[in-house]
Design a protein around this nucleic acid. Structure first.
Lengths: 223, 223
DNA sequence: CGCAAAATGAACCTCTCGGTTAATTGTGTC
DNA sequence: GACACAATTAACCGAGAGGTTCATTTTGCG
């Protein structure tokens, strides 16, 4: 090592120019892990396969994440974070209740559709009785927001006399989730059993509209 | 009818009294397999564990079912058969459309709730992209009935002027399924994230009523 | 530079787990 | 009873999968 061309003696914390890039490696591993776990399940996913699709080696996965379960947990957390941050863009407070709710349903339906990997992870987590979600306090906090968002809309709707009283935000959220989640989670078996007409683009547009109507009619004031 | 404690001269049909009981063994294996696959997923389930919980040995599983996939496929088929036969008891044809639909929703919601193992198998099947459901023509045939049942109710409702026109039986079935399925499939994660009040007995009664209202309002004629 | 610590690579290890081999017992038939 | 075949048992196997060891390089810092 006679030649030392390190003229870059600026002592800045410019990690981006490092040849070693731990943050990037971590993120890369997580992205691959998310896809593999989502595709094959927890015990179905293979550490060797994950490693192979990574830009780094199996050794590094264990270096950063400890073991398979640790990797899965981090992938789950990352997935939740990614999805929930994508949700924050809506601001519905200024809309009238009906329009706000409609837009929320439309958005949720579409959002779930665009994140099948996330949906599949949640399915897997349910198969495993929420063993990992349970451990992750970080995730639990992200979800209170969803409920209070609906509460705001619903309460305003009741005050305005356009929504019926007696419901709870939780039940409304439950309904929206059920419709939006099922559409992705059961797409395969439903198509196999009943044909795939609802999974075509036209079918999905139709179902999205159905979803909005379903929820709006459910909360609407009956007169 | 003679006393049949020793006279097994009638050729063979009385297998129940044999010490060897292949049908019973098969059924026993299938029951255990259903539970284990449902609990742990396809790759999560262990053949040794299944064998241990059986009244017979691992060898017999391979003797009767070939391999793990074969056992899983048979367990899936058995689960579908069991569930679908339990469904046939309703006769809704004689009821007025609204009542018929309400009763169907109520029944489906309850039926799914009582068969969590089956629901979990369907989830697992979706995780695996329906690889096994695809192969089983037996299962596909069982489901056309569900649609035509709804068609009968819906068409009558439209003729009677109580249901709005323009819907399809498939979309109605989809909605009923979504609500009923999600209630079981996502019970764990939903409870973890939002509390388990909807999973209490009172919560489930409430959700069942919500389900009926949701579907009825969705198809109701708006005037 | 020299050293410590973080980051990395390749080969290696151990045990789990799906699947099998070979031999044995039970059952109906003649 | 003898035979053929279905049913059953216990021990065994080999690939594969999760996890590790050790050595090496890269980086930060004085």
């Amino acid at each position: 090592m006679a030649i030392d061309d390190s003229s870059t003696s600026e002592t800045g914390t410019n990690r981006a120019r490092w040849k070693q890039d731990p943050e990037g490696v971590r993120a890369d591993i997580l992205a691959v892990a998310l896809e593999e776990f989502s595709r094959n399940g927890l015990s179905g996913a293979r550490m060797d396969d994950i490693a192979a699709k990574t830009r780094t080696s199996k050794r590094m996965i264990y270096y950063y994440f400890g073991d398979k379960d640790g990797l899965y947990r981090k992938a789950l957390e990352a997935a939740y974070k990614k999805v929930r941050t994508g949700e924050e863009k809506l601001d519905l407070e200024h809309l009238p209740p009906k329009e706000a709710l409609e837009r929320l349903v439309e958005f949720t339906f579409d959002h779930h559709r665009k994140n099948p990997d996330f949906i599949r992870l949640v399915m897997i987590e349910n198969i495993h009785h929420g063993r990992f979600l349970e451990q992750s306090d970080a995730i639990k906090k992200l979800n209170a927001a969803a409920i209070s968002q609906i509460r705001n809309i619903y309460d305003k709707g009741v005050r305005d006399g356009v929504f019926r009283a007696g419901l709870t935000p939780l039940r409304i959220h439950w309904l929206i989730s059920a419709i939006s989640f099922f559409n992705v989670s059961n797409a395969t078996t439903f198509s196999l059993l009943f044909g795939n007409e609802l999974q075509t683009e036209a079918g999905q547009v139709c179902l999205s509209a159905d979803a909005c109507q379903t929820v709006l009619k459910f909360v609407a004031k009956e007169d």
